[in-house]
Nucleic acid binder design. Structure first.
Length: 931
DNA sequence: CCTGTCACG
DNA sequence: GACGTACGTGACAGGG
């Protein structure tokens, strides 16, 4: 039947169906092989319900499910920030996308998508064609972008609320008719799609203006006539941005489609094909329901053989090193690869010659496809007994040639439809990357544990195996030994290595099967999917890039420090009247408190005097020696930890320094940097800050540093809901001065640096879970006075005390606290008695604040690679509230614009802060200049 | 291997 | 009423 009068076209927004199905359902997996199919299941159920509900007299004559295809559309060419705030597609959803197309076809419903266009444009074009032909159209979607199509026989139906949206519905939502919806959207913008619009103008104001002037064009041409001065200026200043926004929201109704309306005619499904598909997916209930409706026999779905179920199966085979396979030829390897491909999920572990993933060599790879089914593929083990001059570096027999094995593994490890599970996958991903394999998609058991159990215990594999599998892993010591006689993994006999390596893969797989279904129940799926797992490739890239360090600068500083230290040491020995080890607190304590009888000597647990800096500072007024020791200590620290150690960390292959970030190191969600720690490079003292001059941009490039201004205090203002603080941040005030002014009744004009400094200490104290003692020590004032400050602070900002009390109460009740983004930090010690309770309480107060800040910069980092993809720039480092980039000189301003936007909007669209986030930028030839 | 000290946010 | 107290990290040196 040709489409025409009397015809009724249904357009189903396929992508919306998929996302709703994905988020509404727990992460179901196909029993036989663990393939994630939650979204497919939900999608099929929705299609079936659609079919059942649309069989009556008003049944459509034509129907199509329309999908988005490709992430880059013509709108991105107009505006590269379009939809830049979108969360990346969850890894579990990705492999399900093609299956939803297959499902649509199995239902024998037309399934359409066109590369480079959004589903909305296809639907707009089809709706217009149908309208012109005199037919009716119903769009099954709740997307407000589609409301511009309503009218003249086109309606929308919100499938969630089962609510029809006609002209009146659109006017209710936008305050204007469908033909003016794009005008309102152009002004109001859209944070979800990142359409800028006019700042400060929302839907209400936009509708008011459009109704007054008739159209957007008219409004912009006659903007001078607007009465409100601020509004007038906004429209005049942002004309180009508003016009761009209109182009972004305007749907393309005139696409050239490679099919016609007639191709969308409603067709009955072929029972064999549809039931075949549902059976393949192992949807028991739905298969039966569909079979009943089609009057067909429901096929029998065999019980699952593999042990992938909602709960970790209790009947898993025991973990036994003797049962694993050693893969020594290509044929066997291919059999394992095929098996992994079929299952769709495989645990992967690499064995290497060391712990440094930038320098070690690959020795072997292990795989696990089901509990108890694991293998080890040795690749570079050395021949045994070769400890003499000859043969020591010969490869042991019976190993597949490295390159041949990697060539065979590469398609599996890069296959987008096969999930690769690892424990601390960043390590393996970096090693494999150095061998030409970019492993993806990945799951990480360490990160699953971190998302669920941060604060409860560590997340190393041995710990997890003990706790969750009641299994003690083979200690690596048993293979490598320890201390001086320790060997590298390539010297381990292959038999012994097989048991160890394959066990790691087996354990990892079992942990993943245990944890994966628990994520949803613990309420941390989103944390894991959006803030843990996607960070792995981002950090991998940063770490592998590294930062250029000028060895000569460090070396000269080391020499200068040595000389000064030698001079100081001599002076110290003279003042003490004897030679001793200045670096030994024990010996120094003896000199100070015994020999010289200076006051304030306190002994620690070990019965030795303690000589921290603040004690020495107090003593400096009494004697010259303590001051000299402090100077010596500073130089000693700078030399040993920085100027000397950093030189050792310059990678000979790249000439750069490559830190490694632990994602699951800090309980709060912060990263930790190690080998070397580049998050504690000196900055507070002038002498220390000069070490940053050694961190440089190569010729023709610039280092750019972007840091969040006062992010934790802003979060506190939001979370504790303190109006005065929130307003101060909105007005861009000096927050410490403002606090001081409020507390001490000093006007901002009469503010002295000292009053401000005290207020600043209190502000930070609040974040740390303030105590009179702590503040007193920090400010070096009597305890009673400090307590007075705190009392006055709480009097002025009662919301802060309420936040602290509420947080403590929450922690006591739930044994955990949460960030604004849902990250959980467990506080098992909160119920402890004695001093531990105090620690736990203050940690509980601090964790949501520090953790939310950590979440925000994580989100920014995850979005950054896409945002800066077109610029000649690389992201190098993260220092908690700061990101450092290396950029070609010509692109500095572009980078600052783009990256700042990503950082300042990193909360979107999940959390709306009541305070703005502000990012400051710096640039220079080295880190000292950029900061 | 633990402790003290000190570098950072 | 006494006790011990700011939050989160990592690296280095000394000393058993």
């Amino acid at each position: 039947m040709a489409f025409g009068k009397g015809c009724h076209l249904h357009l189903i927004d396929g992508s919306a169906y998929i996302f709703r199905a994905f988020h509404a359902l727990p992460p179901l997996t196909r029993k036989s092989d663990g393939l994630p199919i939650g979204a497919v299941s939900g999608f099929c159920n929705m299609l079936q319900r659609y079919v059942e509900e649309n069989a009556g007299p008003d049944a459509p004559t034509h129907v199509a499910v329309i999908f988005d295809k490709g992430s880059h559309t013509f709108r991105n060419d107009m505006y590269d920030q379009y939809k830049a705030n979108r969360e990346a597609m969850p890894e579990d959803l990705r492999p399900q996308i093609p299956l939803t197309r297959t499902a649509t076809e199995a239902f024998n419903i037309a399934c359409k998508e066109i590369e480079g266009f959004e589903a909305d444009d296809i639907m707009a074009t089809l709706a217009c064609q149908a309208r012109r032909a005199g037919g009716r159209v119903t769009i099954l979607s709740s997307d407000k972008d589609l409301m511009q199509l309503v009218g003249d026989g086109v309606e929308m139906l919100d499938p969630m609320k089962n609510k029809r949206i006609d002209r009146e519905g659109v006017e209710e939502k936008f305050g204007v008719g469908p033909e003016r919806v794009v005008d309102v959207q152009a002004l109001a913008g859209d944070s979800v799609d990142n359409v800028p619009g006019a700042p400060g103008i929302g839907i209400k104001t936009a509708a008011l203006l459009i109704n007054e002037f008739g159209s957007l064009e008219e409004l912009l041409d006659r903007a001078e006539e607007i009465k409100q001065p601020k509004r007038r200026q906004t429209l005049i200043d942002n004309r180009a941005q508003i016009e761009l926004s209109k182009k972004l929201v305007q749907l393309d109704e005139g696409m050239d489609l490679p099919f016609s309306l007639d191709d969308l005619e409603v067709r009955d499904p072929d029972p064999e094909i549809l039931l075949g598909f549902l059976t393949d997916m192992e949807f028991r209930t739905l298969t039966k329901r569909v079979a009943d409706r089609l009057g067909a026999e429901a096929p029998v779905i065999p019980e699952a053989t593999a042990a992938v179920t909602e709960e970790a199966a209790p009947d898993w085979p025991a973990i036994d090193a003797a049962t694993y396979t050693c893969v020594r030829d290509l044929e066997t390897l291919h059999a394992w690869i095929d098996r992994a491909q079929q299952v769709g999920t495989v645990a992967v572990d690499t064995e290497t010659t060391g712990l440094n993933d930038m320098r070690c060599e690959l020795v072997g790879v292990s795989l696990a496809v089901a509990p108890g089914e694991a293998c080890y593929i040795p690749l570079a083990h050395r021949a045994e007994g070769g400890d003499d001059l000859f043969g020591a570096d010969d490869l042991a027999d019976g190993q597949i040639r490295m390159q041949a094995a990697l060539d065979a593994l590469k398609p599996l490890l890069q296959d987008p439809s096969v999930m690769k599970i690892g424990q601390n996958m960043k390590y393996d991903a970096k090693v494999l990357s150095r061998y030409g394999i970019e492993i993806a998609p990945i799951d990480d058991t360490m990160l699953m544990s971190y998302a669920m159990h941060a604060g409860e215990h560590g997340h190393g594999m041995d710990t997890l195996a003990e706790r969750y599998l009641a299994h003690t892993c083979i200690p690596i010591k048993d293979l490598l030994g320890s201390g001086k006689s320790m060997i590298t993994f390539d010297r381990v006999p292959i038999d012994k290595a097989t048991g160890y390596a394959a066990e790691d893969a087996d354990v990892t797989l079992r942990l993943a099967l245990t944890f994966k279904p628990q994520l949803h129940r613990a309420g941390v799926t989103r944390v894991y999917e959006t803030m843990e797992r996607p960070l792995v490739p981002v950090l991998k890239q940063m770490e592998m890039t590294g930062i250029a360090v000028d060895r000569d600068v460090l070396s000269r500083m080391s020499n200068a420090f040595s000389q000064k230290m030698a001079m100081l040491e001599e002076e110290i020995h003279d003042l003490a009247g004897e030679k001793f080890n200045v670096g030994s607190p024990a010996q120094l304590g003896e000199i100070l408190f015994e020999k010289m009888s200076l006051p304030g000597g306190k002994k620690g647990k070990t019965g030795k005097y303690s000589t921290p800096a603040d004690v020495l500072e107090d003593l400096a007024t009494e004697h010259d020696l303590p001051g000299r020791v402090l100077d010596w200590r500073q130089l000693s620290k700078l030399k040993s930890t920085y100027t000397d150690a950093l030189q050792e960390h310059i990678n000979p292959d790249t000439g750069r320094v490559h830190t490694s970030y632990s994602i699951a190191g800090a309980n709060t969600g912060r990263l930790a940097s190690n080998d070397p720690n580049l998050q504690n490079i000196p900055v507070r003292s002038e002498e220390g800050r000069r070490i940053r001059e050694a961190f440089v941009a190569p010729e023709g490039k610039t280092l750019v540093s972007l840091d969040y201004s006062q992010i934790e205090l802003r979060i506190l203002a939001h979370m504790a809901d303190i109006d005065a603080l929130k307003q101060a941040f909105r007005d861009g005030q000096d927050i410490h001065a403002m606090t001081a002014s409020e507390m001490f009744n000093v006007s901002m004009e009469d503010m002295t640096p000292d009053i401000r400094r005290q207020a600043k200490a209190i502000n930070f104290g609040v974040i740390y879970g303030i105590s009179g003692f702590g503040l007193a020590r920090n400010l070096r004032i009597p305890r009673a006075e400090a307590q007075g400050f705190i009392d006055r602070y709480f009097e002025r900002f009662p919301g802060i005390r309420k936040y602290m009390d509420d947080t403590k109460a929450f922690a006591k009740e739930h044994k955990r606290v949460e960030t604004l983004f849902g990250r959980q930090i467990h506080t098992p010690e909160i119920a402890a008695k004695g001093p531990r309770a105090g620690f736990a309480q203050r940690a509980a107060i601090n964790a949501p604040i520090q953790g939310t800040a950590a979440d925000i910069i994580r989100r920014a980092m995850i979005r950054m690679p896409d945002a800066i993809a077109k610029l000649p720039v690389r992201m190098l480092l993260q220092v908690h509230d700061e990101l450092i980039f290396e950029v070609e000189n010509g692109a500095v301003d572009d980078l600052i614009g783009v990256a700042k936007g990503v950082m300042e909007n990193a909360c979107d669209p999940v959390v709306k802060l009541d305070v703005p986030l502000v990012v400051d930028a710096g640039q220079g030839a080295n880190w000292a200049e950029a900061h």
